[in-house]
Design a protein around this nucleic acid. Sequence first.
DNA 1: TTGCAGTCAATATC
DNA 2: GATATTGACTGCAA
Length: 533
Amino acid sequence: GSVSDMLSRPKPWSKLTQKGREPFIRMQLWLNGELGQGVLPVQGQQQGPVLHPVPPLQDPLQQGCVSSESTPKTSASCSPAPESPMSSSDSVKSLTELVQQPCPVIDTSKDGKPPEASDAPASDSQPSTPLPLSGHSALSIQELVAMSPELDTYGITKRVKEVLTDNNLGQRLFGETILGLTQGSVSDLLARPKPWHKLSLKGREPFVRMQLWLNDPNNVEKLMDMKRMEKKAYMKRRHSSVSDSQPCEPPSVGVDYSQGASPQPQHQLKKPRVVLAPEEKEALKRAYQQKPYPSPKTIEELATQLNLKTSTVINWFHNYRSRIRRELFIEEIQAGSQGQAGASDSPSARSGRAAPSSEGDSCDGVEAAEGPGAADEEPGGPAAAAKSQGGPAEAAAAPAEREEAPRPAEKTEPPPAGPAGPDDAQDAGRPRPPPEGPADGPRPVPNPAAAAGEDAATSAARPADGSSALPSTSAPAARRPSSLQSLFGLPEAAGARDSRDNPLRKKKAANLNSIIHRLEKAASREEPIEWEF
DNA sequence: TTGCAGTCAATATC
DNA sequence: GATATTGACTGCAA
């Protein structure tokens, strides 16, 4: 009976007591496969048989959150929990405890210097074994990700950037040793973090790693060491002529530089990178404005007209949609943070656009009620919106297509697909695209666009997906209390927006603000917009 | 099949 | 030299 009740009427995390949260944690563990098989000890039986030890899980957590991979720090500092493998039940228990306990949080201080240093060294030696996480570590990290509370991705990246710049540490080094990502990816992540609830498990991993790294008292030192070693290796190599074998470096350090440095496998047949000319990009953008989801036929036409490979055109649309979406996320975030106070506009003037949505979105979780609705606008939308408001012209041009959207994009979650079809439609009304070409809006697009224009058909398919995804995830996430956050030592400050207090409330407030703002804007410019709240 | 998330890695820019 | 941009690729899901 309890299960039935819980499954059908789960209470929001924030309203659950510690005890009440336990079943959800168990469910989460179960979903993660951690509890998979054994029989969980039911409440009373605290220590039941040892089911699955969920070791990694906690250790890392408590450990403070050190980057698991690299440094398996001991947990001295934070965790209450014992290191020994525990039974699942134990783990659950500890988890819950952790939830409430303030872990040694990270200091928000910029340099990431950790408050207490407990540890560290220990494995200093292996400081970084970042990337390829070893099995064990990999697991840990994944578990951490799965169990992680909602993290303030924006705040995390902000702090990471601060720490890196303050200490003169490069993205490459950080990415390769801590995140296991290349410089370009790191740059992108730091510059355009997606909101937590819109990230897949995999996408959350880098943020969890960053959080753990921030929590590591010796984070900076370790990186500095790496830097030094790298330099040393470089010099060595240099001096010792070419030599490739650089085993010299601390193997322990999992760094790849060695590999990078070493004349490795040269990629032989590299195909030259395609670089689109500005005009081509312009044309594609215009086409996008008319049809974010061009039909194969349209793609063909575009490719032909622009003299590009169809795959290039396809990739361009995929990338563009995806990137626009991210831009929106960011704006939302920014708008949101500011919005709180004034709500209104965020810097990005365009607030009108997405803001709302976004907020909404972010809130969606919030408003679950409203549901998905608010989502951000579509991809193109927003930004474009802003500019494009002018866009209308274009819109006009391609009105047809838009039809599709039965429901306002907004409602659905903005994201992905959602946008697609629907959006288009809507876009008509509002601006879609991106930030790019400023001028564009108005201008009548030349050919390509035209090409695109016609086929209204486009979007049919997409609608579906878009919406679905988010909601689910977001919702839960959103409401997740910050409790777990403590596990990660969430930075308060940074996350200012974090919900430490009442996230829901904040979100709602933000949402309201954005709505108001949108209304004001709409009023002032009389755009025909359908509002859905 | 189509679209998306995440990344890589080549280039561009700063 | 570090960081930002961006075309392409991989793996997944619907």
